[in-house]
Design a protein around this nucleic acid. Sequence first.
DNA 1: CAGGAAAATGGTAGCGCTACCATTACGCAG
DNA 2: CTGCGTAATGGTAGCGCTACCATTTTCCTG
Lengths: 344, 344
Amino acid sequence: MALIKPRSRRGGGRPTIADVARKAGVGAITVSRALREPERVSEELRRQIQAAVDELGYVPDPNARALASARAEVFGVLVPSLTNNVFAEVVRGIYDSLSDSPFRIQLGNTHYSGLEEERLLQLFGSQRPAALIVAGIDQTPTSRKLLENAGCPVVQVMETGPDPVDMMVGFSHLDGGRTATEHLIEMGYRRIGFIGARMDPRSQRRLAGYRAAMEKAGLFDPRLITTTPLLSSVPLGRELFRDALAKVPSLDGVFCNNDDIALGVLFECHRAAIDVPKTIGIVGFNDLDMMQVAFPSITSIRTYRYEIGRRAVAMALAAIAGDRPEQRVVDLGFELKRRESTAR
Amino acid sequence: MALIKPRSRRGGGRPTIADVARKAGVGAITVSRALREPERVSEELRRQIQAAVDELGYVPDPNARALASARAEVFGVLVPSLTNNVFAEVVRGIYDSLSDSPFRIQLGNTHYSGLEEERLLQLFGSQRPAALIVAGIDQTPTSRKLLENAGCPVVQVMETGPDPVDMMVGFSHLDGGRTATEHLIEMGYRRIGFIGARMDPRSQRRLAGYRAAMEKAGLFDPRLITTTPLLSSVPLGRELFRDALAKVPSLDGVFCNNDDIALGVLFECHRAAIDVPKTIGIVGFNDLDMMQVAFPSITSIRTYRYEIGRRAVAMALAAIAGDRPEQRVVDLGFELKRRESTAR
DNA sequence: CAGGAAAATGGTAGCGCTACCATTACGCAG
DNA sequence: CTGCGTAATGGTAGCGCTACCATTTTCCTG
């Protein structure tokens, strides 16, 4: 009956780095190094240690690691919505880019609320993340300060702008809105409405692009604009279009703030037997894959959401590795996809 | 020139619990308690401590907390896809239910891969999460063992089944598939196809439900089934429908494995001038909100994804609090939404 | 008013890991 | 053979917090 030191009362008896070290006959620190910087440990010890790790089924405790190194292997990601396909794609890009790395992802949903964003930033910051990726460039002053003091690379995504906290990947929503509207004008539409839900800052800028194009063509009329603070959806698109049409019966085109709205408009046109594109032209935004198979297919502004996510991670990873990219603001652009819904 | 102990070289100089304790004139442990179990600290000290916390801007370090208590305030969530609206809704339910709690969420994307699931479970487990929520009930033996040994409440979501690891919230996909198919039969359709992409276990069970209904009615014909391992999408729905129709020109109805596919079918019908519901009846699955505004509106099986997420969290929270619910398997059911696409 | 339970507070000793600074081993120039 | 730079390894001391076990104070009961 040996007097063995009892297994620690707390940690649930999982093997620790000390167990591995004992089994491999080396110091704990060497195990730590073998795991994190293998090139600094001799070939032989590395093998021994690996064997011990496998045999014991050792998995490092990320919490202990984070505490000791004052750095968690976590990417904090903040988006305003989880169900909106646009952000889901960005998030997917982020996940795919990080799946082979040691980094975990901490995803936060701000619900389009600045206050919520501050709360989450505070929470995420307390973990000492390796990097932060946040959607949008319109942080509150408090949030901005939080980002600046985060002590890690920060990437603002979805949009580009003049004053990055650190890095940015996105495109110009204003230009997107203008391009969409100019296309409608070019195709001969005149009484072109803007329909948008959930007018977040990006939507506001698309609207500004719409307005710029309309004013330049001498077609602007505030009555052509229909918006709501409600969350965007296909049914809502249908409702808003009916409102818009009731307000301006001479409407002959719509630039929809996103594809959900556009689809709602299309369905209402079918239902009301309004000819698309003859009577009404429709342009969406984001180019969800259903746009190209809709009947008629819907013209839309293609955006590179997935790529934004990938790029953001690539830039953050580079910054973590020490080489700050010289190009701190990356504009991924967009592309107008001309389709049947505007082919008058 | 006092010999003040230098600010720790590591932790970046943020205030710690000791700083708060000093400022409030109490012991560190009392601060810890005031923050976690306020009712165990006297009114007065609580106020003093709160004041110190506010003044210093103290935020507890979750890593240190997790290490000391061998328990991280983290919910691990594993889903096969981030962009599929179905899982996005479940995840949204989880986030909304947890937003006012101290728990963070660790979201993992398995890409429908058992291996990836094992990897993530291993990773998540190493953090000692407070609870695990995983999609599906068909874990590999390794994953199942990992879940059983996680040492925390586990909720399997999306489906119900006979043998929960711990708890379950979902519904019967087999019954859903059967109900959808029976509806088509009842409405007078006879050559009813099944169209499905990404045949994960849930899709397989919907197919089984379809098959059961068809066989019972003496209508089953394997040529009516069209599937692909590709990821589901609206364009793919269109493709598959064309394939199905080429294979079986007499097709007069389709049960689509999900609403994306159904929408693709509808668009193709428009394009090919096939009358819905006269010539072809369409039923979808999940009842995305666009189904009710499509033209014609599409019959679908309504599922309660958001509610599944909420319920899963509620059950996990209850288990954490110590009261294991006696009902460990919760069936949230589904509802057939009859619409124009089957109103022959 | 003693006795004892309960409430309120604090001290100590880690949790499992890594930063920092030795220490040792080795090779090679002088 | 000495001296010294470099590579490889290890020991020590925390990281910031909480579990565990005192200790003190308060308040009841008989």
